[in-house]
Design a protein around this nucleic acid. Sequence first.
DNA 1: CCTGTTGGTCAACGCTTGTTGGCAAACGTA
DNA 2: TACGTTTGCCAACAAGCGTTGACCAACAGG
Lengths: 193, 193
Amino acid sequence: MSEKQQVGRRSDATRATILAAARDRFAADGYERATIRAIAGDARIDPSMVMRYFGNKEGLFAAAVALDLRLPDPADVAREDIGRTLVGHFLDLWEANDELTALLRVGATNPSAAERMQGVLREQLIPIARQVCPRPDQAPARAALSASQVLGFALTRYVLRFPASVALERAEVVDWLGPTVQRYLTAESADKP
Amino acid sequence: MSEKQQVGRRSDATRATILAAARDRFAADGYERATIRAIAGDARIDPSMVMRYFGNKEGLFAAAVALDLRLPDPADVAREDIGRTLVGHFLDLWEANDELTALLRVGATNPSAAERMQGVLREQLIPIARQVCPRPDQAPARAALSASQVLGFALTRYVLRFPASVALERAEVVDWLGPTVQRYLTAESADKP
DNA sequence: CCTGTTGGTCAACGCTTGTTGGCAAACGTA
DNA sequence: TACGTTTGCCAACAAGCGTTGACCAACAGG
């Protein structure tokens, strides 16, 4: 409780080092193969420190992925641009760091990570869909369809690493995926514009 | 080498039992958490039998997922129906058994499973794209985009189990995803019909 | 009847995992 | 200088993993 005007304690640095190493390992290997020993090794620290800081492996994973998407407010975007805007935003998020790759890879195996992805859909994507789609009661389905396309592309590009997906330029991705998401969110119905 | 007119050996039954149990476990838990002991337990057999029949765990997984998609020949389908036809076909495959769910879930973590998915794309999906897309050199990109949508939807419905994805009727899925795949495969370019 | 093959069980191996508790050094404060 | 707290390393634990080899039961052919 000394509370100097010091910005952070000495251990906050290693804390951050551990979290960065954890993100990398979870993104690269998934939950089970990303061992605490390997993460601690990357951070040049003893495995027991990871336990002291984060309690257990699940706590470490929870701390390593913060998942605040900071999606744009639909009110700031022309309605006919929402698809392309969202796709571009997601691409930025995905390339910024390994957090989303980690969440996706772990979510495929770990039920609690899958639940967190459901939470993101529910609290961040469905509200947006509700603002732009014709009938608000369709918002969950339309948000889920949009998520399926965005997550599916991320799967092929960042997880499975299909060469043809990796090779696509950012602009091409937006040009192809943007209209798809636009249609899922704003089309009057599946068979009408 | 006795070769009676007997249809199968006595062990073929347990072999099949093991493979079925393996598919279920791999589909439900992913590669690492689907332990040989658990699979053997489901099949009411000793773990060592699994090793005798399939060599090791990788051999078991390879035998458990056969992955011959038997995709329809584009020559038998009207060009404007190829998207809906493919989506319907994939839905059938996915609901027929757990094989594709197992492949998807394991592919997210296991590099060799990811390579097998690349193989499916290369040898089964790209050839179809080459037959229907305007410029054959674009076939890999167009096939990858189509795969991203199909796999992405399968991810949300069968792996992550988003309620809104699970709730969609088969006809709705075809109505929403069919035109998307159709556009990826046959549109003149990303911004033209 | 013996005998070789097949289908299956049992017990153990070496290794890795997450996790724990004790001990040493560095540090801030008085 | 002395001392409590923080930060870190070390060694070990119990459990679970893939994998192995020895052994047993059924069975078919001579």
